[in-house]
Amino acid sequence: MTEQRPLLEVTDLVKHYAVRGGVLRRQVGTVHAVDGVSFALGAGETLGLVGESGCGKSTVARTVLRLVEPTSGAIKLDGEDIAPLSKTALRPYRRSMQIVFQDPFASLNPRMTAGDIVGEPLTVHGIATGAKKQERVAELFQQVGLRPDQMKNFPHQFSGGQRQRICIARALSLGPRLIVCDEPVSALDVSIQAQVINLLIDLQRKQNFSYLFIAHDLAVVAHISHRVAVMYLGRIVEIADKHELFANPRHPYTQALLASVPIADPKAKRTAPLIDGDVPSPINPPSGCAFHTRCPYAIDRCKTERPMLQAAGTAHQVACWLNDGTGRSE
């Protein structure tokens, strides 16, 4: 993607949560949920964000949309920093960015019809009312593979995959330029996942919006993304073009992550787990490189100095001190 200016540019995004304890609810610690994340996303591009639970990928998604207030950092949408905007000033920007959540059961109001759910954004932004709104909603239903006569049904009358289609239709209703997908298929059955992934790809081809696609499933992310960023404990440790990343992972964590994915082929030899132990707590994360406590290749420098993202090839950046900051080659 060689755009003049990226659609979304996130710089040094930080989100800290205070941990309070005791009777007086004094702050006793800080959760470093997102700890200095920067990335850019071009128009019509998909950036995958992978990592394990607690790595901060969902917080990044919510902070980008200002559903969670960032502690610091800039979120530029089309060159405009939306991080400092007030709620009212932010409203027009909401039309350009939408979200699809993981749980298609909880993300639809059980007391509203599917048609009302999809049409609500149109009402809220005063775009269409009455028959015009119904027409637009019917059109959206068709775009996501639902029948317009299903508009009067309630969420519980739909299957999981269909509900996720309703969520996608709602996200599309305002004609957004960025859609954040927070684990959109991980609650779905395998055979339904493929339908939803294909739908997301088809819609993007037709309407040329960008996806920030968050998932823990590497295969799904790899399939849908153009570029992939790997997160660990609130930081991006590696970001690269998809093919480059999977062909030539440089960060020991990325390498371990890739090696851990069970391959659906009994002849593929099972490799012994590369890394031991669990992800450390994001309250007081390890010093230096946060991964050094589990990294089999850690050197002294990793324990004290935090590595920053550095170029390690074309369209490939890694935050690792090994090999003069270009990461480990396999």
Binding site: S191, A194, H223, H243, F246
Partner: peptide, 28 residues
């Protein structure tokens, strides 16, 4: 067969980009 075809594979370096996944149409 449908199940096996519908799971995306972690791409190997030589994988073709943007292949549509094989869907099992309809639902359970």
């Amino acid at each position: 067969r449908g199940l096996m075809a519908s799971i995306p594979a972690v791409p190997s370096p030589d994988a073709k980009a943007d292949v549509r996944l094989v869907e099992i149409p309809g639902m359970v």
